[in-house]
Amino acid sequence: MEWTLVSTDHDRGVEIRLTGDLDLYNAPRFSIYVLQKIEVGWSKILLDMRGVEYLDSTGAGSLIRIAQALRKKGAKLRCRNLGGSPRRVLEMANILPLLEETR
């Protein structure tokens, strides 16, 4: 899995484009990266999930930990282009209410 910073505008927030599998092998690395960034100042984050084709419970757990960290800063994790089985997994795990879906 890879991720790319699309935008790092401090007012509008950071946009991260994800590509690949957000799974038990890759998701921990991604969440550690984002959590460290939140610790040093990121408070608005938008995840572009268009390139994510596979997401499992570890991936869902990563999104939860990021959402929890942002909640402490009064912000909500934003996502866009969430579809297919990753969306279905988050729906079945009741994680969708934690996310703000945007276009």
Binding site: S57, G61, I64, A67, R71, M92, A93, P97, L98
Partner: peptide
């Protein structure tokens, strides 16, 4: 949602940071 988010991950005696109980919910 505050309570829900606080409870969003299950931590049992043998859980680690990567466990969340989400697999069983789904």
């Amino acid at each position: 949602f505050d309570t829900f988010l606080a409870m969003a991950s299950y931590r049992g005696p043998r859980s680690d940071d990567m466990d969340g109980g989400n697999s069983l919910v789904a």
